[in-house]
Structure formats: structure tokens, C-alpha cells
Amino acid sequence: MPSLGPLELTILLAVARLGDDAHGLAIRRDISARTRHAYSVGAVYTTLQRLQDKGLLASFTTEPLPVRGGRSRRQYTLTTAGRRAMREAERRAANVWAGLGSPLSPERA
């Protein structure tokens, strides 16, 4: 199971959330809005490329679009390995956070 960095996991989650609309621009907007951090297009695309190299994402290109200066979009989908990696990340996070519910509640803070 390939290890996932924080941005890699964030992008995998965005691809899962966006479904059929998971292309570069939508992914970048989604993760920037959720993390409140303006990721550069270079950071997002190099991570998408890495995830694809790891076999966690698959991609295909659409027809060229006039709004993109005649360039096509690259749509991303999760692979089986990608879904497995997400479940594994969720399980690990749950293990790490287990038992910390009450110390973090507002009345104890």
C-alpha cells in the first residue's frame, strides 16, 4: 500500500467527492475552499501526476474546449487501489484519534 501525504489524501478525497466533475480546476477549487489555502496549479497537477503514477487515480482527456483556448480537460477517477488507500487512511486516522473525543470538547478546553 503506497503511503499518502496530506495533499495527496486531500486530493483523493476531492476526486471522490466531485465524481464525474473531477478535473484539475474543480479539484483545485474544492481543496482550496475546504483547506482555506490557495494551492498553486503546479502543486495540484504534480500531486495528481504522482497519484496516477502510484496507480491510485486514472485519467482521460475530454474533447478540446474553446473556453480553454482549444485545450482539453483531464478528468480523474479513483481506481480500486485509490479507494483502498482512502479507506486505509481513514482507518489509521480513526485509530490515532480514538479516545480523544472528550479531552477536545469545548467545556474541557
Binding site: 484539475g24 483556448g69 482539453s72 480537460r73
Partner: peptide, 12 residues
């Protein structure tokens, strides 16, 4: 293949 999508996103 990534350069085309990246430049397309920026153009959009």
C-alpha cells in the same frame, strides 16, 4: 499530457 491540462486550467 499534464502540461496541456494544466495550461488549459490556467486559460479557463
Amino acid at each position: 499530457e499534464f502540461a496541456d491540462a494544466l495550461l488549459g486550467d490556467l486559460a479557463e
